[in-house]
Each structure stands twice: as structure tokens, then as C-alpha cells.
Design a protein around this nucleic acid. Sequence first.
DNA 1: TCAGACTGAATGGCTATTCATTCACCGATT
DNA 2: AATCGGTGAATGAATAGCCATTCAGTCTGA
Lengths: 205, 205
Amino acid sequence: MSKSSRSTAHARVAVPDKHEAILRAAITVFAEKGYFNSKVADIASEAGVADGTVYLYFKSKEEILHSIFNRAMEKFIDEGTKELSNIKDVTKRLARIAELHLERLGGDRDLAVVFQVELRGSTKFMEAFSAAGFAKYLDIIKRTIEEGQKSGDFRADIKAITVAKMFYGVLDEMVTDWILSKKAYQLAPMAKEVMKLFLGGISHK
Amino acid sequence: MSKSSRSTAHARVAVPDKHEAILRAAITVFAEKGYFNSKVADIASEAGVADGTVYLYFKSKEEILHSIFNRAMEKFIDEGTKELSNIKDVTKRLARIAELHLERLGGDRDLAVVFQVELRGSTKFMEAFSAAGFAKYLDIIKRTIEEGQKSGDFRADIKAITVAKMFYGVLDEMVTDWILSKKAYQLAPMAKEVMKLFLGGISHK
DNA sequence: TCAGACTGAATGGCTATTCATTCACCGATT
DNA sequence: AATCGGTGAATGAATAGCCATTCAGTCTGA
């Protein structure tokens, strides 16, 4: 191939990747005002392109939201799966899941807002899109729990899927609180607290 | 007073309370299509009144959503507070909180959908409205935890507020799963599972 | 000069909200 | 008992504003 043929875009002058720029802009705008209160014009403006340009890269406003979700979820699961497969100890693996979850979302507040708020912000949406990715994510947790139950590391008198949901619920709530909190604090360190409570329970021994 | 003077309304013919009818209709419609995809005309139609009538009872579409939230939250907290004050044992009280949470939302699926989905569906909304009610709710949990930590029933090496958030997160996730689940199951019994794990943790002793 | 990326004003559809009108009832009057 | 305004709840067609999407034209690099 000749020197100038990297991606499908031709990169005429300055902006390297409008597709990417529009996605980032959308994340910012959606996080700020919410999906339904965001105008396509806002996104275009934030991305530094004309309104119409948005439609050269996305079929509709809705598709932008889908793209945000799909891209992030894919990356999230891919990288997570890869890293977790190296951890044999189930307790350590569970701890790493918590860390990853909180690190990733804690590292990109706007993306976290879109995830926590917009993706949950519509039943239809949840059903249609989250479903697949979310189920996969939950399954990763569930399998770790199951493994721990088989090995005897984890108690086996609660269904693995139930434990997985609860674990996810705790992480999710940590993220939501962090988003809504006025105080700036690091999200990732909360993983330690989560594990402490999740492993040992609240009962004083 | 004479025989026909019950409330402020004159009860001309059939419908007893349009205010109530519109609220119920809105819960149904919002649960079905989401706030932003619901037309005021849909709500009016569902309530069996004319479009304009909605505006005799509510200032705007948004106010309807606020009313739904405020009314439910108030009732929820009032009744909860009353009942919980009788329970001295902190573990039992925590268990009752879980039961109440799941019973209430499990008893009105449409309301639960609006709560889980719409209230979380907008940062603005969360900040402006949920905030007060939600904080109050979380505080009830937190105080129970604190009490348990003082009495020695609960471990004290995690901040009470953090424990409270995690507890709430678990309950919240149980509700969300129930809503999205295709299978019909009773939500309230999950309280038992929640307590089992929350008290003892997942580590096998 | 050409291709095609980019622009942004114009369009079209949608729907929250308004408001002139209707109508069922009530008390008063005959 | 029949009639007659008066009242205000209820109606729903019309309005008015918003905004996603389109597309005719511009501009740029090759």
C-alpha cells in the first residue's frame, strides 16, 4: 500500500479522525445534559464540525449512543478477559474484577456518567443493547464465583448468579455515588472496601 | 355538612379523582415507553381524560414525574420509619429494611420501573429531586449500621456510610434484575439471600 | 478540473402547552 | 315543577417552538 492510506478516512487537513472526535464530543455532551436534552448541533459544535458532518459518520443520533456503548463495552470485556485469565486464585480474581471495574469507570468520568445514567435510562435501551454486553460481563463474574464455590473458597449456599448480581450491584452503586458526589475522590481504592465487606460480611465475628 | 361535599372536587359524574388517575396513568405510560418517549396525550388517553385536563392538575409533564417520585418516596420513608423504629435488634432491622425495599418495589412493577429507570435516567433529575429523598433513605440505613457498629453486632472497620451504600447497591440491583427479567419471580424473598451474603460474606469459613 | 468531504441553512415532523368553547350541574326564581 | 343564568371543570383543535435530518452548494487537494 502507498504511503497515505491508513484508515477509510482521507484526513484532508487537520482533524485526524472525525469519527472519534464526534464520539468523544457526544460522550461529553451526553454526560453534561443527558441524551434527550442533547442536540445533535451541540455534539457537532463540541466536536468542531458542522451539523451535517455528524451524519456522514453516524446514521442517527441514536446510533451515536449505541456506538459509545458498544465500543466501550467491547474494549472493557476484551481487556478484562485477557487480564483475568492469568489469575488463578478466585479471591484475587474477584478483587481484580472490582479494581478493573472501578478503575475503568473512575478513569473517565464522562463515560461513566453515560454508562450509569443513560444506559440505564431506558428500559428499551437496556433490553436491546446492554443485554448482550451486560450478560457477558455478569457471566464473567458468575463463573468466578462458581469456580470459587467448587474449590471451596466461597460458600456454596447461595446461587452463583445471585452472588454475581449482588457483587455487580455493589460496584455499580460505588460508581453512581462517585459520579453524583460533589467531593472529588478516587474511585478505584473503593475496591478494597468492597472486597473486605463482600468476603467477610458485616457481622462481627 | 350535607350529604354531597366530600373533597374539593365536585364529582360531577363518574371519575372520582382525576389527579390520582393521571398519576397512575403516567406511571403506566412512563414505565412502558420511558419519560421522553411518552406523549402527554398518551397519559391523558390512558387516564381517560382530555389532553388539556392534564394541565388542570399538573403544571407540566415534568411536574408529573416529580409528583410520582415525591409521593412514592414520602410514603415509602414514612411507613418505613414508623415500622423500623419498633425493631431494636440491628440485624433484624437491617433485614426488615431489605424486605420493605423489595416488597414495596416488587409490589408495583410499573412504579419500580419508573424508579429504577427514569429517576436514574437523568443526572439533573437525580441531583435536583432524588437527592433529598434518597439521602434520607440512605441515612436510615447508615444509622442502623452505625448502631450495629457501636453495639458490636457489626464490624467497625468499614465506614458506616460505605456499608450503607453497598447495601443499597445490592438491593437496587436486585430490583433492576427483577424488572428486566423475563421470568416472573417474587422479588421480596430475595431479601433473605441478600442478608445471608451481607452478614456472612462469601468466604467459606 | 474532478471527486468527494464538508458545510449549515432550510425542511418537516413532532408534541407540549394553550385557550375558546362546551356542558353538566346547582341554586334561585317564578 | 319548570325555567334560567351562573360556574368552572373538561375538552380538543390550534399554536408555537424545537430539533433531527437533509441536501444543494462550497471548498480543497490532487
